[in-house]
C-alpha cells in the first residue's frame, strides 16, 4: 500500500494528472502507523481503486492539529470527499472548513459528530453480546462471574453495559466483582494483580466460573493470574474482545482464554468507501453510524484466517 501511494504521489508530483471527471478523495489520519488503521486504509484503498477514484492518503504522524491543516489544504485543492480516522471532537475547525465548502466528511472508526456525514465502525454492543452470551452458555447459565470493564472510556463502557444486561438475565449467574483495572501500563499487569487477589479470596475450586473482560488485555492478565495460581484446570472460562494477536495465541493454545471478537478492519475500510460513493452519488445518509459485522473468535476458527 505504502509503495503504491508513494508511486501515486510521485506521479502526481511529476505532473501526471488524472482525468478531471475522476472522483478525488483524501484520507487523513494521525494514526497510519498503527496496525488497525493500516488495515482500514488498505481496505479503503482497495475499494477506492475498484471505484476508480484518485486517492490521497495523508498521515500526519500523530499530529492532530496537522489533520486540521491538511483538511483545509485538500478542501482548498477541491477534493470531492474527506475520510478521517481521528476523534472528530479534536478537529472541529477542520470539519467546519469542509462543511463551509460543501465537502462531505466521513469517519472511518472516528466517532460521531454533527459535521461527520457518517461514521463506519464496529458495533460495541454486538461484540459484548457475543462474548457475554458465550460465557453464559458455556457455564450452563450458572456460576460466579468476574467482569473487567472500563466505564470512563465510552466505547468500552457500552460493552460493559451489555454484559451487565446479559448476566442479569440469567438468575443463577452472579457477578461477584466488576473490576476497573488501572490501564496506565496497558492493562495486563494490574488486571493480573486484581485477579490474583480475587483468586485468593475465592480459594474453592469452582467458586469462580468465568471471567468476562471488555477487551483483551484484562482477559490476558486474568489468564496469567489463573495459570500462576495453579488453577488452570478448574475450567474457568475467560473471554476478551478485539482478538489481538496475543489473545489469538492464547485462544489457539486451548487454555482458559476461550473466546474474543475480531473486528473486520478491512470491511470497515471497504464500507467507508461504499458510503463515500453513496454520498458522492447524491444519496442522503440517514444512518449516521454504520456498523460492520464482527466475528466471534474461538478455538474452532482462530487458525482459519
Amino acid at each position: 500500500m505504502t509503495l503504491r501511494t508513494c508511486l501515486i504521489g510521485l506521479a502526481a508530483a511529476a505532473g501526471l494528472g488524472t482525468p478531471a471527471a475522476a472522483r478525488e478523495v483524501a484520507v487523513i489520519t494521525p494514526y497510519l502507523a498503527q496496525p488497525g488503521t493500516q488495515f482500514y486504509v488498505d481496505g479503503f484503498t482497495a475499494r477506492a481503486e475498484e471505484l476508480g477514484w484518485t486517492l490521497n492518503v495523508i498521515d500526519t504522524a500523530g499530529d492532530v492539529a496537522a489533520v486540521i491543516s491538511r483538511i483545509e489544504d485538500v478542501v482548498t485543492q477541491g477534493v470531492d470527499a474527506v475520510v478521517i480516522n481521528v476523534d472528530p471532537a479534536q478537529i472541529g475547525a477542520g470539519l467546519q472548513t469542509a462543511a463551509d465548502a460543501g465537502v462531505p466528511v466521513v469517519g472511518m472508526d472516528a466517532g460521531s459528530d454533527p459535521l461527520v456525514a457518517a461514521n463506519i465502525t464496529s458495533n460495541g454492543y454486538a461484540m459484548a453480546a457475543e462474548t457475554s452470551v458465550y460465557v453464559a452458555n458455556r457455564i450452563g447459565g450458572a456460576g460466579n462471574v468476574v467482569m473487567f470493564t472500563f466505564d470512563p472510556f465510552p466505547p468500552v463502557q457500552v460493552r460493559g453495559a451489555i454484559a451487565d444486561a446479559v448476566f442479569a438475565n440469567f438468575p443463577d449467574i452472579e457477578v461477584i466483582d466488576r473490576i476497573t483495572p488501572d490501564v496506565s501500563d496497558g492493562g495486563i499487569a494490574d488486571s493480573r494483580a486484581q485477579m490474583e487477589a480475587l483468586l485468593a479470596a475465592n480459594p474453592e475450586p469452582g467458586s469462580i466460573a468465568a471471567v468476562w473482560a471488555a477487551w483483551d488485555q484484562p482477559a490476558l492478565g486474568a489468564l496469567q493470574a489463573i495459570e500462576a495460581a495453579g488453577r488452570a484446570d478448574e475450567g474457568i472460562v475467560i473471554t476478551g474482545i478485539d482478538a489481538n494477536p496475543q489473545a489469538r495465541d492464547a485462544i489457539a493454545a486451548g487454555g482458559n482464554f476461550e473466546a474474543s471478537v475480531a473486528q473486520d478492519f478491512d470491511g470497515i475500510g471497504r464500507t467507508t468507501a461504499d458510503t463515500v460513493a453513496r454520498i458522492l452519488s447524491g444519496k442522503e445518509i440517514v444512518q449516521r453510524v454504520i456498523y460492520v459485522p464482527t466475528k466471534l473468535v474461538t478455538i474452532a476458527n482462530v487458525n482459519a484466517e
Partner: peptide
C-alpha cells in the same frame, strides 16, 4: 511546502 505538496497529492512520507 506542506500546503502545496498536500494540494499536489504528494504522499505524506515523500513530503517529509
Amino acid at each position: 511546502l506542506d500546503n502545496g505538496l498536500t494540494q499536489m497529492r504528494v504522499d505524506s512520507y515523500v513530503r517529509e
